[in-house]
């Protein structure tokens, strides 16, 4: 969790310092891609906490989701249908799901036994 926050902050600083910008026309695609990337990072943190982190899945998800989201936004623009809503809802929803899971794991880890916490989570049916 903290590593991600620190990473995003460091990245933001680097981004501000870099002179490079892209065309404003692409901003919609990039913003949807950012959402997908954020979701991937949250998913990565969660799987790391659940001890089933896989580099391959994480990296492919990171780039694949971002590209797919940007592609959806692009196609939607061409067709005149706001298809990027699909990406926003999916990744936005998953983002909160992942965050909820991270929160629970993290909070439960502090107080109780981790195994017990996981068991409780499974009982509740929440992640």
């Amino acid at each position: 969790m903290f590593i991600a926050l620190i990473g995003i902050l460091v990245g933001a600083v680097i981004g501000f310092l870099l002179p490079y910008t892209y065309n404003t026309a692409y901003s919609l695609y990039i913003s949807v891609a950012i959402l997908a990337c954020l979701d991937s990072v949250f998913g990565g943190i969660r799987s790391n906490l659940e001890n089933n982190f896989s580099v391959k899945i994480f990296v492919s998800g990171f780039f694949g989701n971002a590209l797919l989201a940007a592609f959806l936004a692009y196609i939607g623009d061409r067709l005149g249908v706001p298809l990027y809503y699909a990406a926003i809802f999916t990744f936005g929803g998953r983002l909160f799901d992942n965050f909820a899971a991270i929160r629970r794991i993290w909070l439960n880890k502090r107080g109780r036994d981790k195994v017990r916490a996981n068991k409780e989570l499974k009982d509740k049916g929440e992640f």
């Binding site: 902050l9 460091v10 990245g11 933001a12 680097i14 950012i34 990337c37 990072v41």
Partner: peptide, 11 residues
């Protein structure tokens, strides 16, 4: 990868 996201956001 968080750094990549941060760069994208700040850009």
């Amino acid at each position: 990868f968080s750094i990549i996201v941060g760069i994208l956001i700040s850009t």
